[in-house]
């Protein structure tokens, strides 16, 4: 922990970094979104960008995960992901059932290969 000092200064530096470099993008969203027309093309584009971005993150988390999840074979991850989505649609789009079924399928798959 070379760069970050201990004690109160450490907290103040973290707070300062967050406010100066991280939070302004959120504030910019307030300003840019304040007068945006929901039926206009700009809003349609920004909404598509946000949607595609989250979908991209989904694939990254399934195909290229970090940590313990990454040690499981890709086939098991993709299979469990597909199982979760299938259960989601079969249960008339129940988010809780889909998510829990996907997680259960992952555990079952990992235990099956030992």
């Amino acid at each position: 922990m070379s760069a970050l000092p201990d004690g109160l200064w450490g907290y103040l530096i973290l707070l300062g970094m967050a406010l100066a470099f991280h939070e302004p993008w959120r504030w910019a969203g307030i300003v840019l979104g304040r007068d945006i027309d929901v039926h206009g093309p700009v809003f349609a584009w920004v909404r598509s960008v946000a949607t595609a971005l989250v979908a991209g993150l989904v694939m990254r988390l399934v195909l290229f995960p970090a940590g313990a999840l990454g040690t499981l074979p890709p086939g098991i991850r993709v299979g469990a992901f597909a199982t979760g989505i299938a259960v989601f649609f079969l249960t008339r789009r129940s988010l809780a059932k889909g998510v829990l079924a996907g997680a259960a399928a992952l555990i079952a798959g990992a235990m099956a290969i030992g």
């Binding site: 949607t51 989250v54 979908a55 993150l57 989904v58 694939m59 988390l61 399934v62 995960p65 940590g67 313990a68 999840l69 040690t71 499981l72 991850r77 469990a80 992901f81 979760g84 989505i85 989601f88 789009r93 988010l95 889909g98 998510v99 829990l100 996907g102 997680a103 259960a104 992952l106 555990i107 990992a110 235990m111």
Partner: peptide
């Protein structure tokens, strides 16, 4: 156990994709 951690982390992409679909 790592497998439990993995399963918990795996809920994130499942939840995101289903929320997008909804």
């Amino acid at each position: 156990p790592p497998l439990l951690t993995s399963a918990l982390l795996f809920m994130t992409p499942l939840y995101f994709i289903m929320s997008l679909i909804l």
